[in-house]
């Protein structure tokens, strides 16, 4: 197995783990953690393709990963802000209980 497919497999596994976390946990914060893991798995893919791709000097994959890190930071900040705001309104972050559309 080539090194690239090793990295891709690890990324796929991490993505699946993150997806499982996002789909099965009740706590909204842990769902966010799952989403972060999925984003990170995608970053690993990008960097692995950059490293083993035909044109590493073009920096495309690396740049994509760096921008994705920045965007993920913004996403985490807004997501956690929303979670705190939801908690303030409903006194819970349990996603099974947050089922009303009316605030």
């Amino acid at each position: 197995m080539s090194p690239l497919s090793c990295y891709l497999l690890v990324a796929a596994l991490l993505f699946a783990v993150g997806l499982a976390g996002a789909l099965t946990r009740r706590n909204a914060i842990l769902v966010l953690i799952g989403i972060e893991l999925m984003l990170n798995a995608a970053n690993l893919n990008l960097i692995a393709f950059w490293r083993y791709g035909p044109h590493p000097e073009a920096l495309t994959g690396l740049m994509f990963a760096v921008f994705s890190i920045a965007v993920a930071a913004a996403e985490a900040a807004v997501g956690l802000g929303l979670v705190i705001s939801i908690y303030r309104h409903l006194r819970t972050v349990d996603l099974d209980e947050i089922s009303r559309m009316k605030g």
Binding site: S5, A12, A20, L23
Partner: peptide
């Protein structure tokens, strides 16, 4: 009340299916 949601089995199946597809592709 437990830490996993009521639909945890569905979520797990979906995640496993996604991993299977990705691994198969890789």
């Amino acid at each position: 009340t437990g830490v996993f949601s009521k639909t945890w089995l569905t979520g797990l199946v979906i995640a496993a299916a996604v991993f299977a597809v990705l691994a198969w592709a890789v």
